[in-house]
């Protein structure tokens, strides 16, 4: 549970980290297309982490049944 809390907090902190100069320049280049890439990555990473969480639940269920 603690891990997920830290993950959620990290997501909320993204705009602060993005203020670092190098990342900022990259995200502002080419008509800010990398912002779109960032958004797609956030969605992808969140869904993958959620699937891992579901898989852990299935593992627990399988252990109970054996």
């Amino acid at each position: 549970m603690k891990k997920y809390l830290i993950y959620i907090l990290n997501l909320l902190l993204i705009p602060f980290f993005a203020n670092a100069q190098g990342v900022d320049n990259l995200l502002r280049s080419n008509g800010r297309i990398y912002v779109v890439i960032g958004v797609i990555l956030i969605i992808f990473i969140s869904i993958i982490l959620y699937l891992i969480r579901i898989e852990r639940k299935i593992d627990k269920l399988e252990k109970q049944n054996h």
Binding site: L11, L12, I14, L27, R32, V39, I42, I43, S46, I47
Partner: peptide, 22 residues
């Protein structure tokens, strides 16, 4: 809730590059 949180996180990134003054 999961999709709400993803929406919030993606919105946070998007607004940082449109509304916020660099």
């Amino acid at each position: 809730i999961l999709f709400g949180l993803i929406g919030y996180a993606t919105g946070a990134l998007w607004m940082n590059y449109t509304w916020a003054d660099p």
